[in-house]
Amino acid sequence: MKEMSRIVKTVTNFVYGFIIIFGFYIIAHGHLTPGGGFQGGAVVGSAFALLLISYGSLNSKKFLKKDILSLFEGFGLILFIVLGFSGLGITFFYNFLANSGGWFGNAAVIGVNPGNMNTGGVIPLMNIAVGLEVLSAFGVIVLTMASAAEFTKKKENS
C-alpha cells in the first residue's frame, strides 16, 4: 500500500506514542478505573492500525513484526490459563492472592476511595495477560490484512 501524505505522517509521529501509553495505562489500572485488559488492548491495536494506514505495510515492517506479535499472543493466553489453574486447590479461577498480604494482596478500603495499586489479588495479573493477548491479536489481524491488500493490488497491476 502506498504511504499517505506528509501531513498525515507528521501527525502520526506526534500522536501514536501517546495512544500506546494511554492503552497501557488502561491495562495497568484495570482494577481501579473503568476499562480492563480487552479495552486497553483494543486501544493499542488501533494505534498499530494508525501506523499501518499512514506509513503503508512495506515501510512499517521495521517496527511491527508478525513473529514477535504472535509469540506475545500465545504467551498471554498461556499465562491466563496458568493463572486460572493456579487456584485449583479450591475452585477453577479462584482468587488465591486477594487479601493475603503478598503480591497485590492488600485489602481494599470499603466505600468510595481513590484506590491502591497493590490490591485486587489475581485480577491485575489477568488484566496484563488478556491485554497482551488482545493487543497482539489485533496487531496480527491488521498487519496480515494490510499485506494481503498490497499483494492483491500488485498482482492485478502486473
Binding site: 484495570g30 482494577h31 481501579l32 478505573t33 473503568p34 480492563g36 479461577f93 482468587n95 486477594a98 487479601n99 497485590f104 494482596g105 492488600n106 485489602a107 481494599a108 470499603i110 476511595n113 484506590g115 490490591t119 485486587g120 489479588g121 489475581v122 485480577i123 489477568m126 488484566n127 488478556v130
Partner: peptide
C-alpha cells in the same frame, strides 16, 4: 470490594 479487593466491580465480575 471485600471479597476480591478490587475497587472496580465490573472488572471483578469479569475476571473473578
Amino acid at each position: 470490594q471485600s471479597e476480591t479487593g478490587a475497587n472496580n466491580v465490573v472488572t471483578s465480575v469479569v475476571f473473578d
